[in-house]
Design a protein around this nucleic acid. Sequence first.
DNA 1: GTTTTTTTTAATCATTTGATTAAAATGTTT
DNA 2: AAACATTTTAATCAAATGATTAAAAAAAAC
Lengths: 243, 243
Amino acid sequence: MAKGKTAKGVKPAKVVRSAKKVKAAKGAEPNVGKGAKANKEASTEEKIKNAARKLFTQKGFAATRTRDIAEEAGINLALLNYYFRSKQKLFDLVMMENFRRFLQGMTVNFVDDTLTMQERVVRIVSAYIDFLTEFPDLPLFILNEITHNPSKIAARIHEEVGPTRSKFFQQLQAAKMEGKVALDPFHFIANLVGLTVFPFVSKPILQRVTGVTDEKFEALMQERKKLVPMWIKMMLLPPGGEK
Amino acid sequence: MAKGKTAKGVKPAKVVRSAKKVKAAKGAEPNVGKGAKANKEASTEEKIKNAARKLFTQKGFAATRTRDIAEEAGINLALLNYYFRSKQKLFDLVMMENFRRFLQGMTVNFVDDTLTMQERVVRIVSAYIDFLTEFPDLPLFILNEITHNPSKIAARIHEEVGPTRSKFFQQLQAAKMEGKVALDPFHFIANLVGLTVFPFVSKPILQRVTGVTDEKFEALMQERKKLVPMWIKMMLLPPGGEK
DNA sequence: GTTTTTTTTAATCATTTGATTAAAATGTTT
DNA sequence: AAACATTTTAATCAAATGATTAAAAAAAAC
C-alpha cells in the first residue's frame, strides 16, 4: 500500500474496461424491472440509479454529493464511477428518464383521434394529477433543468413531443376553424398545465398561505380532476355574453 | 510574506472588526438606492449584493461560487466575507429581500377595502405580470427555496402575508356567504397565482413546445392581464347552467 | 480446481471552494 | 503630518468533493 508516487504525467482519460458487460444473452435473469420499487434485491447499477434519481430530483445536481448517492444506495463510492463514469453522466441519464416519464403522460392522451378535445383534457388532467401525486418533486426538477440547461433538453423535447405537438396544433386549428374554440394555443396549453401542475410545484407555499393539511391538499387535487376540465371548457368559449 | 505557520490552534471565530461602520450620521451621502440599477458607482457592499442576487437567483445557492460573485461584482473575493461573513449569510440576506419583494406585489392590493374582489384581481394580475416581466427568474428561485428550505422562510411568510391573509380569507368568506362565490379559497389562490405566475416559470418549456418567440411571449402576457381576471371571474360562479 | 474476468473495497489524488490572514492601501481624525 | 481606523489585496488554508487506482473478493469460464 502507499506506493510513493502514482504515475504522474499520465493522462487519466481512457478507462481500460470496456463498455460494461454484454449482459443478458444468458438464461435465467432474476428481476428486471419487476415491481420491487425499493432498493432491496436490485442490481448495483439499479441501486445507484434509484438513489441518484431520488437525490437529484430532490436537491438538484449541484447540491447533491456523490457520497450521498453512494450512501443512499448502500454501495461503495467508487462503484458510482465504475458504472456511470461520472456524476454528470449519471445525472444526464436520470434526468432524461425523468423527463421522458413526465412528458409521456402528456403526450399519450393527445394522439387518440377518436376523442373530443374535452375528453382529452379530462384524461390528461386526471392522469397528471395521479402522476404528480406519486412524484411530487418531479415538476420542479424539470422546470429547473429546462431553465438552466436548455440545450441538453431541447433535443429530447422535440423528439418526445414533436409529433404529438403538431397533431395537437392541427386539432386545435381545426376546432378554431369550426368556431368551437377561440383561444390562442399558447394560452390553452399554459392554462392546462398551469392549473394542473402549478398547485404541486407550489404546494409548500400554498399550504402555508392557506393553512391546508396534506390530506386536505390531496382531496383538493382530486377535486381538481373535475374542476380543471370544467374551467378549461369555460375558457374555450369566451364570447358568451360577458361585458 | 509567507510566514511559516499561521497560528494553528486558534479558533477562527469572532472577527475583531465591529458590526460594520456606523454609516450615515454624516452630511452628504452620494447615491443611496437612487435609480442606478447597474453596478457602476455603487458601494462595495451594494456591488456584492447585486452580483449575489443575480447569480443566486439565476443558479441557486449550491451552484453559485463565491468566486463568481466576486468576479461579477468586480471585487476581491475576501471582501465578500469581510462584508457578509459567509456565503450563507449573504444568501439569506438576498433571499429574504427577494422574497419580500415577491410577496409585496401580492399583498399590497389585497388590503384596500374599497375595492371589489374583481378589481383586486385585476390589479394583482396586472401588477404581477409587469413585475414578472422585469424579474423573470424570481418565481422559480422562490419555489426552490421554499421547497428546499421551508423553515427559513416559514417565519417570513407569516410575518409578511399573515395580516393580509386573514383579511383576504375574511373577504372571501363574506363573499361566499352572500352567495357570490362558491369556490374553495385554496382553489381561488392556486388558480390566481397559477394562471399568473406559471407561464413565467415554465417559459422555456412553453416556448419550445409552442414555438413562441420572446416578443410574442411578452405580447401574450400582456393579453393575460385581461384574460386571467376574466377567467377567474368565470370560475367564481360555477353553478350557471352547465351539466 | 484452476484460470480468467468482473465486481467491490479502501486508500489516495487533484481540484475546487469557502474562508482566513497579514500586510498594504486608502481614508479619517486630530 | 501623525495617529488611527477602515477598506482592499494577495496568498494561503482546510475541508469538501469528484475521481482514480491497486488490490482484494466474488463470479464466471474453462
